[in-house]
Nucleic acid binder design. Structure first.
Lengths: 149, 149
DNA sequence: TTTATATACGATAATAGTTATCGTATATAA
DNA sequence: TTATATACGATAACTATTATCGTATATAAA
């Protein structure tokens, strides 16, 4: 159930990499080499990040990618939706954050489960919205209520 | 990323159905008919729930399934792991709740992202552990801290 | 102008995972 | 004996993800 896809995961790695070398431009080759990722997929991932407006690209010989948005402006929920499209925990609930409250329930009759499904969806969305990308690499210091000391 | 699989979703529906008619035995046919689910898959789902120890079965003409565990004893995290196997948010983190703290990181060199990945994994696991199956259908009344009134 | 390096991107192949179907066996109440 | 129900392996169908390939375009530097 709970699993980032490869592109999302590589995207996180790339974003963090870039956040640590502000000013400097990064290339797909550099990211791929540094973390041992397949070049082709890393390149696609960076293009995807660019399409999402998270980074900007420069073509040509000394081209590459640079961060465009502050990572603290982006929540994990937003990031996932950008990278993987609208997310819904269950078939019978509308995608997280879509604003739809109505249930597109395909189940017959009065499916009392839908209240649970919709709320679960909402809770997951809020949870993911509570995490910002700038927490990458320093999350231990900002663990939320409920974590042991 | 965040999506229950069909069996898990049907399993939740079936469990809730059964929790509402304690004492009474339920059949795969009954659940399938009531919610408009395909019979074959509903049957497999109930067998799966039985394998997980959540319900018990009785074969024969007046056979069927009955709840075995109190739903409030089961967290969503446990349920997901029973139904879908060990869960990990990312490739480079050990499955949630596995007790492993070490990172099975496949990425080259010092992948500083792994701290984030492992913590994200932990946070997701704790989030899912905070929800119990008995909240099915009455979740609105128990929404956690952070939700609007 | 040429060369090397880099992104851009569509097409598609390969793989994996999920979901659905089928056939047959077994148990039991009536 | 019959009707009803679970048990379950095998596998087909479908979907989504992941990987690969080929070609185009942009640009700095020689």
């Amino acid at each position: 159930m709970i699993r980032l896809n490869r592109t999302t995961e590589y995207g996180l790695i790339a974003l963090r990499h870039m956040s640590q070398r502000r000013q400097n431009i990064t290339s797909a080759r550099e990211v791929a080499d540094q973390y041992g990722l397949p070049f082709e997929i890393t390149a696609k991932t960076l293009q995807r990040l660019r399409d999402c407006g998270l980074i900007q690209s420069a073509q040509g010989a000394h081209g590459g990618y640079m961060l465009k948005k502050e990572l603290e402006e982006v929540t994990l929920a937003e990031f996932l939706q950008l990278m993987e499209g609208p997310q819904a925990v269950v078939v019978c609930a509308p995608p997280m954050g879509s604003g739809h409250v109505g249930c597109e329930c395909e189940y017959k009759g009065k499916c009392e489960i839908k209240g649970f499904m919709t709320d679960l969806n909402t809770r997951v969305f809020r949870f993911l919205s509570s995490i910002r990308l700038n927490e990458l690499g320093r999350l231990r210091t900002v663990l939320a209520i409920g974590d042991e000391p």
